[in-house]
Each structure stands twice: as structure tokens, then as C-alpha cells.
Simulated assay, not measured.
Amino acid sequence: MLLKDKLKNKEFVITGEITPPKGTDCSHIFEVVKDLKGKVDAVNVCDSPMAKMKMSSILAGHFIQEETGLETIPHITCRDKNIIALQGDLIGASNLGIKNILAITGDDPKAGDHPQASPVFDTNSIGIIEGVQKLNNGFDFNDNPLKGNTDLVVATAANLGAKDLDSEIERLKTKVEAGANFIQTQPAYDLELLKLFLDKTKDLDIPILIGILPLTGYKMAQYLNNKVPGIDIPADILSRMKGNDQKEGIKIAREFLSQAYDLMDGIHIMSANRSDVLLDILEALA
């Protein structure tokens, strides 16, 4: 069953995440995705995350689908291309058999491995969402007719731990009005915070996949909690990670999943190209 059909039928959805290679060798990501086939419904394909150059998310997504048969969700950012190039990529992605994309604004190039690169940001994630729906209806971003149309499901991101959660929810409402078909969130660790977020978004009426990011150690937990906006790690979890490694992080993720499963439409597991980690987490759902 296609991802869009599972979303439409309100079935529990599981997605993973892949970072394309910095180079031409896709063998490792193919191995990871083959391990995940039958366990997840699709895999996100990052678009040069943290502004560090990687293979095109669209082409990597196409190669993954051709090699493994598993659906992909390439990330499309506004960082590197103007709206002409973005539309060309989206049309090409649809013709290559890509069924889904995630629209995000993207990281500033100054944070990456090519700090001299010029940021574009012709539009933002809302503009991409609106544009995808126009392309799906046979028109470009300026309402000029196309010869043929795309057929893309578009996801959007959400920060469930935003300092100003009400403003985040208002922005999410705007994204849904623009045509977002489902939501994938930043990582969640706090059950009460998750409940608050889900309560505030209960009227959005589109599936929300909750982000799951297993901690690899105390240093990572501290960094996420102190440096990454919107990620709030409870004190008891920070305490548990002291002196512990990824095994404890996976245990925490599995416990969280068991506690929150009945509240969620699905999950998005970020496991850094580690199929073994993702599959270990999914044991909580067995």
C-alpha cells in the first residue's frame, strides 16, 4: 500500500531517515534501506543536512526506490535554489516516480562545509507547500499552465518543543491551509509535552508523525537539550544517560514509544543510517 493511502486511511505510519552519501557510492544506504523494507512505510532522504554537501536528495531518493522498491520522502529546502529551479526539481521528481516530499526552509550555509556558498531563500516551506499543490493541479507557482501535472504528497515539519508553542501551532495551521498532507515533528522525549502538543493540534485533521531520535550518550543529550531549539529532554532522562551509551538511549526510546503509542498517528525515527538502531526501537511495537 502506498504511503498516501495509509495516511488517508489513518493507519499507523512508520518512517525512517537516510542521509545521502558525500560522493557517488550509494551501497551503504541501499543496504540500510533493504534492512528496513517491510518494517517502515517510507524513508526520508535528507537534503544536505546542516548545510553539509551531499548527493541530491531527489536523485538519491530515486536511486533508493529503483534499487529497493521502498518509497522515499526527499527533503526539499529553500536554501540552495530559486523558485524556478525548485519547480524544475519538483516536476522532475514526480516524473522519476517520487511520490512524496518534505518541505523545509533549510539550514544557513554558514553552518556547513561550504560557508562561502550564497543562500537563496526565495521562498519558505509554506511557499513550497503552496507551490506543490499548484503543480499538482497543473499550474506553476505563478499560475501559468503546465503540460501535465505532478502527483506529490507534501509533508511539513513541526517543532513540538517550541518556546512559543502557540505561535508554532499557528504556523502549522497556515501550512495545513497551504496544502500540507501530513506532519513530521522534531524529536520528542517528554510525554507531557507531547500530550500538550497533540491537544493543541487536535483540530488540524492531518496525520502527525512524532519524531524519535535515540540518544547515543550523555554528551549528545546535553547538546540537544542545551543547543537545539525546541528539544526539551527531561532531567530524569539526562540523569539516566550519564555514564551510559546508545543501549540506554534505545531503551529510553522504546519506553517512550510504549507509553505514547496510543496517542500517535505514526512515528518518524531518525537513526543516522543505522538500520539496526531503528529495528531495535521498533521492537517496542512488537
Rank of each mutant, 00 (worst) to 15 (best):
M1D: 12
L2N: 14
K4Y: 06
D5C: 02
K6Y: 08
N9L: 12
K10V: 00
F12I: 12
T15P: 05
T15C: 04
G23F: 00
C26F: 09
C26N: 05
S27W: 01
S27I: 01
H28L: 12
E31P: 00
K39P: 00
K39V: 01
D41I: 12
N44R: 07
V45G: 02
V45P: 02
D47W: 01
M50V: 08
A51S: 14
M53F: 13
M53V: 14
L59E: 02
A60S: 15
G61Y: 03
I64A: 02
Q65H: 15
E66P: 09
E71M: 07
I73K: 06
P74E: 05
H75F: 09
H75I: 01
T77E: 03
T77G: 03
C78P: 02
D80I: 01
K81E: 14
N82E: 09
N82S: 07
N82K: 05
N82C: 08
A85M: 08
G88C: 05
G92L: 14
G92D: 13
S94P: 04
I98M: 08
A103V: 05
A103P: 02
I104F: 04
K110R: 12
D113W: 05
P119M: 10
G127S: 09
I128M: 04
E130M: 04
E130Q: 11
Q133G: 00
L135Y: 03
L135M: 04
N136K: 10
N137E: 11
D140H: 10
N144S: 12
D151E: 15
A155W: 02
G161W: 06
D164G: 10
D164W: 08
D164P: 06
E168F: 06
E168G: 05
I169K: 06
L172F: 03
L172E: 08
T174D: 14
V176I: 14
Q184S: 07
Y189P: 13
L196M: 07
L198F: 08
T201M: 11
L209G: 07
L209H: 10
G211A: 04
P214V: 07
L215F: 11
Y218S: 15
K219G: 07
K219A: 11
Q222D: 11
Q222M: 13
N226P: 00
V228C: 00
R240K: 15
N244V: 03
D245A: 13
Q246L: 15
K247F: 05
K247Q: 12
K251I: 07
I252A: 11
I252W: 10
E255S: 11
Y261L: 14
Y261R: 15
D262R: 11
D265K: 11
I269C: 12
R274S: 13
V277K: 05
V277N: 03
E283Y: 01
